[in-house]
């Protein structure tokens, strides 16, 4: 396994929103989902995830409620709100544009 990359500032929120766009999840589920998708290439601090959730709930991008898991445990589930979905869409688009521009410059070779 290669050395894990640090996350670029702001992208954690985006990844969390992406995770929640599939289904409501509790905190650990989000962690597991991110690890699975990134194949361990991102170094996500578990604590940072919760700060991100607090931040986004406060901003009205997601909401939370207590539910029972499949194993009948009480867990706090987070759910995407319409504002969060919009945020995910626009931020993803701008990040893609950014990466494309960056790649274009960095991959150019002297003629």
């Amino acid at each position: 396994m290669a050395e894990a990359l640090p996350l670029i500032k702001g992208t954690l929120d985006l990844l969390v929103l992406k995770a929640l766009s599939w289904a409501p999840m509790h905190g650990f589920e989000i962690c597991a989902w991110l690890e699975e998708r990134s194949d361990g290439s991102f170094d996500v601090d578990d604590g940072a995830l919760y700060y991100s959730l607090h931040r986004m709930e406060e901003r009205g991008l997601i909401r939370s409620e207590w539910r029972l898991t499949d194993n009948n445990r009480r867990a706090r589930y987070y759910q995407l709100l319409p504002a969060g979905r919009t945020h995910l869409r626009t931020e993803t688009a701008s990040l893609e544009r950014y990466v494309r521009a960056l790649t274009g410059i960095l991959s150019a070779r002297p003629a």
Partner: peptide, 14 residues
């Protein structure tokens, strides 16, 4: 209190 419960759950799951 809720945060502590959530954290406990996280630890157990991990």
């Amino acid at each position: 209190d809720e945060m502590l419960e959530e954290l406990e759950f996280h630890l157990e799951s991990r």
